[in-house]
């Protein structure tokens, strides 16, 4: 049984209550924020539990590293406040069930790229950037054995994460991996933020995909030709769990001659893709998601972006068509890096 490490004392002495006052989706003043977060911490119901869009951002806003979002989700589950309709929750829970036999365990005895539940995106893992790098979870039929489960934060199901995650960590560990380069922000956030907050032990080191890409580009510096593109970066919700790694996005852009356009919805103010919001129960959720997407994309457009850079396949799935319709080309970060070293990107459309 894992327990969330949430320290009420920190909230009592918190000067800002930024977790809720900064929330982009609710208008909450400081006093209300202080009162509501304490109610939630005390196990009580709060309008926040009902109105939260599960964007993960408060994890980043809390200056004390106090995990307000995990707390909200935990309480939603305990009080049976379901952000999504029942069938979507059941569907989501079933998605993560492996069903096509056991994975083959290759011993990597060192570092490896961890694709998690995105083995179907192996087409991105090509060329010099990834030369010689072993991969864990490269078989789409077996990828749910490596699924970090953190998606269930959107589903008010901390219990599912805690029940399945230790088994996932054990499977990864059986590969004898010392350093896992996490393809997806969600895996990285799981092992570096969620697990410590719950006291779940992670017996391998983790590296953020962008840090890996940056370091490889530095090694391949001689091959880089400036891409000369004006780019906007689509920040996924789970990157809120590792805000310190965001700098690598801009370091990469600088290194490859991509100009990050000046935007309103960027960094801490970034807007999510809206993919999860459109299915939520709250009245008007579908429209709200579409409004958020509209704001986000017109902001990219107004800022003059030619290209929208993604890392999260779910964001890509939700937004790629929409940005394309506005004349902005969608591309995965790894593909952009490959373009910079003279390779043909796999998913450039």
């Amino acid at each position: 049984m894992y327990e969330l490490n949430f320290d009420v004392q920190k909230c009592l002495h918190c000067p800002t209550h930024a977790c809720l006052t900064r929330c982009q989706h609710m208008d909450i003043d400081r006093d209300t924020a202080g009162r509501e977060i304490l109610k939630i911490a005390a196990g009580e119901d709060s309008f926040v539990l009902h109105d939260c869009l599960t964007c993960y951002a408060c994890e980043e806003y809390c200056p004390m590293g106090n995990h307000p979002f995990y707390l909200i989700v935990k309480r939603q589950e305990e009080l049976n406040v379901q952000p999504l309709p029942r069938p979507l929750i059941q569907r989501g829970i079933n998605i993560g069930k492996p069903f096509r036999g056991e994975p083959k365990i290759n011993k990597v005895n060192g570092r490896a790229l961890l694709m998690g539940a995105f083995a179907d995106h192996m087409f991105l893992i090509q060329g010099r950037l990834f030369e010689g790098l072993p991969v864990i979870s490269d078989d789409p039929r077996k990828m749910f054995h490596y699924f970090c489960q953190l998606m269930y934060l959107h589903y008010a199901r901390i219990s599912v994460i805690n029940e399945r995650l230790p088994g996932v960590i054990e499977t990864i560990t059986r590969h004898n991996v010392t350093e896992a380069i996490c393809f997806h922000d969600e895996c990285y956030g799981t092992y570096t933020s969620y697990c410590p907050s719950m006291g779940i032990e992670v017996p391998f080191r983790t590296v953020h995909f962008f840090e890996f890409l940056y370091n490889r580009l530095v090694e391949l510096r001689n091959l880089i030709r400036p891409v000369n593109l004006r780019v906007a970066y689509q920040r996924p919700c789970s990157s809120r769990l590792s805000p310190g790694k965001l700098r690598f996005v801009y370091d990469i852009f600088k290194l490859i001659g991509a100009e990050a356009v000046q935007r309103k919805y960027v960094g801490r103010n970034a807007l999510c893709c809206g993919g999860i919001i459109e299915g939520q129960r709250r009245e008007g959720s579908r429209k709200r998601a579409s409004e958020i997407q509209g704001l986000n994309i017109s902001d990219m457009k107004d800022a003059g972006a030619e290209v929208c850079v993604f890392n999260c396949p779910a964001c890509y799935h939700t937004l790629a068509h929409l940005v394309e319709k506005e004349g902005i080309r969608p591309i995965f970060m790894s593909d952009l890096c490959r373009l910079a070293i003279g390779e043909q990107p796999a998913g450039w459309r």
């Binding site: 999504l84 309709p85 029942r86 069938p87 979507l88 459109e278 299915g279 129960r281 959720s285 939700t318």
Partner: peptide
């Protein structure tokens, strides 16, 4: 919409 509000049905995009 009624199905969604009741929590009985979900829109998947």
């Amino acid at each position: 919409g009624e199905y969604i509000r009741r929590g009985d049905g979900g829109y998947l995009g």
